[in-house]
Computed example of a mutant assay.
Amino acid sequence: MRTDAAAPSDEEILDALRAAARGLHDELGGLSDDSVAAPSELPGWTRGHVLAHITGIANALARQAELARRGEQADLYDGGMPARDAAIEAGAGAAAAVHRVRTGAAVDRAVGAFAALAPSEWDTPVRFRRGVARDAALALWRELVIHRSDLGTGCTQQEWSDSFCLHLLGFLAPRVPEGLAFELRPTVGAPIHLGSGSDVVVLEGRLQDLAAWLAGRTTAHGGVRAECNGEAVPLPGLGPWPSAMAIM
């Protein structure tokens, strides 16, 4: 199976964004001040850090779409990564009610910005990844789905849809180290091949666990198993996450 064969249409992307936004709003509605301050699934980050990041990236991606409609472009974050990191630290400690308003408004702004695009505007160039508006919409989908799981409030990768996992695997294919190729064998469905190296590592598990592992997220013990030349081996290391900033 080729992951790009399952590329969603623009209408499917919008439907996925709306569903992901509903999921985030569900999370926001159940948060208290104590739960916001609790650790998330991301090392060193509280749930407040995750919410502050969602707020920042949602507003940033919304701006990409809003500018695209006017034929304009701007960097993802004014001030680059230092400004992005500072905003997360500054916003992380807010009360649950503040996160509820800020994050909810940012997510709604972003979904609304992409919903406002005319069919031809999805191919309008944006500064983000030197791509088009569609690339920014797909990034928003990834951010909302993955970071909802990162909150650690009960939603895990097991709730990720097959279509999302296939998209994520294709996006993260650059994480396959040079010289290696991965043959992913989900428990249901055809094998998925990533990378072009001569040394092939076979990885088995549920599609959701395979996607989460490639995204650097924790899976249950034995959730992903690796073998090479018919023998069990440790899970291979991964390259860096494809950076939105380095190629702008």
Results as ranks from 00 to 15, higher is better:
Ser32Gly: 15
Arg148Gln: 11
Ala211Asn: 04
His49Thr: 11
Ser149Gly: 13
Arg102Pro: 05
Pro8Phe: 10
Asp108Trp: 08
Ala110Cys: 08
Phe171Pro: 10
Gly104Met: 00
His53Pro: 05
Pro240Gly: 05
Glu204Gly: 07
Thr156Pro: 03
Ala6Arg: 00
Ala115Gln: 15
Gly205Pro: 02
His49Asp: 14
Pro119Thr: 09
Met245Arg: 10
Asp150Ala: 03
Gly44Gln: 06
Leu238Cys: 04
Asp75Gly: 11
Ser243Arg: 08
Trp241Gln: 06
Ala212Lys: 00
Ser196Phe: 11
Ala226Ile: 09
Val224Lys: 06
Leu138Trp: 01
Ala90Lys: 12
Glu12His: 01
Ala58Asn: 13
Leu151His: 03
Ser196Met: 12
Leu117Val: 04
Ala106Glu: 05
Leu144His: 06
Arg70Met: 05
Val233Cys: 01
Gly80Glu: 09
Ile54His: 00
Val200Leu: 12
Pro191Cys: 05
Gly170Leu: 02
Leu42Met: 13
Gln158Gly: 15
Ala5Trp: 11
Glu159Trp: 13
Leu28Val: 12
Ala6Phe: 03
Glu72Met: 13
Ser120Asn: 12
Glu12Gln: 11
Arg84Pro: 04
Gly237Trp: 01
Phe128Met: 14
Pro236Val: 13
Leu168Phe: 12
Thr187Arg: 12
Pro177Cys: 10
Gly179His: 10
Gly222Phe: 06
Glu11Cys: 04
Leu184Pro: 09
Asp209Asn: 08
Glu11Ile: 09
Ala110Glu: 10
Asp209Arg: 01
Thr3Lys: 06
Pro82Phe: 10
Ala173Pro: 09
Val201Ala: 11
Ser35Val: 15
Gly170Arg: 03
Ala5His: 11
Arg185His: 08
Pro234Phe: 01
Phe164Met: 05
Asn59Pro: 01
Gly230Cys: 08
Ile192Glu: 00
Ala215Ile: 04
Gly195Trp: 01
Asp135Arg: 14
Tyr77Lys: 00
Gln208Glu: 15
Arg129Asp: 07
Val50Asn: 06
Phe171Lys: 14
Ala60Trp: 03
Arg63Asp: 12
Arg69Gly: 06
Val145Glu: 08
Trp141Arg: 04
Pro186Val: 05
Arg225Pro: 01
Thr153Lys: 04
Gly30Arg: 13
Met81Phe: 12
Gly80Val: 06
Glu143Asp: 12
Thr103His: 09
Ala106Arg: 01
Ile247Thr: 15
Thr187Trp: 07
Thr124Asp: 01
Gly170Thr: 07
Gly179Tyr: 12
Ile88Lys: 03
Ala7His: 14
Ser198Ile: 12
His147Met: 06
Gly131Phe: 10
Glu143Gln: 05
Val126Lys: 02
